[in-house]
Amino acid sequence: MSAKELTILGETILPGQGKTLNMEIARLHTMTKLKVPVIIERAKVDGPTVLFTAGLHGDEINGTEIVRQMIARNINKPRAGTIICIPVVNIFGFVNQSREFPDGRDLNRVFPGSKKGSLASRFAYFLLKEIVPHVDYAIDFHAGGASRFNAPQIRIVPNDANLKALSEVFNAPFTLYSKNIPGSFRSACSKLGVKMLLFEGGKSLDINADVTQEGVRGAKRVLHHLGMLNPKKNLRLAERPTICIETSAWMRARESGLFQNPTKAGQFVTKGEVIACITDPFGKYEKKVRAPHSGYIINSNDSPIVYEGDAIFHISVKMG
């Protein structure tokens, strides 16, 4: 719960105050400082502390747009408790439009980090030390990589009733059960007792309006559920229950070629249905791609060219 005084990065934020702080972890090789803005808004009424993060991978811009809209529309100003927003965690990768940190490491695989480790490891350590101990709930926004488009979805660990209930409140089109990956931000937060939802939607280096609105609306529902949403903000109620997916499987290309893909993420397909086509560039052959089983397409490859063995569809197998 929010204390009367909240001190982050050496700054004290009182109830009713809002501040933008800057995390300064290191410099570029040009000696240029890169600051990571941390936007904090507190209500006068006590309540939970919720953290919204995006851009852990610097090229996943859709998540940044979701958090940006929450700030621009004053959704991050709570009626109770505290909301912390970090729209771009990996500012280094964001500047370079790349997934990794400048040291070549994936920030989402080095948690809990180390005070004297690599650049990415030091940043992970600093984030867990300075920000996360104040947090009760978190939503971390991601997007698909390598031209693969994720249908809007929440990912939670299996057999956690609290997270399951929270995912139902968020009400993304899909909820996927997936174990915590060692070294991930989600895993580190879980070990510290933070209830985190991981949102996936869209693809890297892209902003999709539908995905953005799913993210913003879901975050608003969670804030409303926690008694934190400003009553002046319109709340769109869920129109359908989230579809829970216990298991899913990747489908891979059997040939290399031009990928003709009319099937969108989120679509339901039936076993044997033609969902794409792989052709050569010279008009000599066309190979039909058929669904190996019935299920929802939760990730679809948007690349115009694929190679044999490339992941082209992620399809649900078993519903919860």
Rank of each mutant, 00 (worst) to 15 (best):
Ala253Trp: 01
Tyr285Lys: 13
Ser248Gly: 09
Ala253Thr: 03
Pro241Ala: 10
Ala253Val: 05
Gln213Lys: 13
Lys116Val: 04
Gly93Thr: 00
Leu205Pro: 01
Ser2Ala: 14
Thr20Gln: 15
Cys244Ser: 13
Gly320Asp: 15
Ala265Leu: 03
Asp46Tyr: 06
Gly104Ala: 04
Ser248Asp: 10
Leu258His: 08
Asn76Arg: 12
Cys277Lys: 12
Asp302Trp: 13
Pro152Met: 07
Asp310Lys: 01
Leu163Cys: 08
Glu214Gln: 10
Val67Trp: 03
Ile91Asp: 00
Ile312Arg: 00
Gly183Asn: 02
Val157Met: 15
Val132Arg: 02
Lys284Met: 15
Pro78His: 09
His314Ser: 06
His314Pro: 02
Phe149Tyr: 15
Asn108Glu: 09
Leu51Asn: 08
Gln153His: 08
Val45Tyr: 04
Gly117Trp: 01
Pro173Ser: 11
Ser190Arg: 12
Arg290Met: 11
Gln17His: 14
Asp210Met: 07
Val157Thr: 14
Tyr307Trp: 10
Arg42Gly: 01
Arg27Glu: 04
Ile315Leu: 15
Leu51Met: 14
Gln69His: 13
Pro182Cys: 12
Ser256Met: 08
Thr212Phe: 06
Glu246Ser: 11
Gly63Asp: 05
Asp302Ser: 15
Arg122Phe: 07
Ile275Trp: 00
Pro241Gln: 07
Asn301Ser: 11
Gly145Cys: 09
Asn234Gly: 12
Ile71Glu: 06
Ser118Val: 05
Cys244Lys: 15
Asn76Gln: 12
Ser118Tyr: 01
Ile75Pro: 06
Ser316Gln: 02
Gly257Lys: 09
Pro241Trp: 05
Lys203Val: 09
Gly144Leu: 05
Ser248Phe: 13
Val216Glu: 08
Glu41Leu: 08
Ala26Arg: 05
Ile8Val: 15
Pro281Arg: 11
Ile71Ala: 07
Ala165Ser: 08
Ile156Gly: 07
Val135Arg: 03
Ala165Val: 10
Ile245Cys: 04
Ser190Tyr: 12
His57Thr: 07
Met319Thr: 15
Asp46Met: 05
Gly272Ala: 10
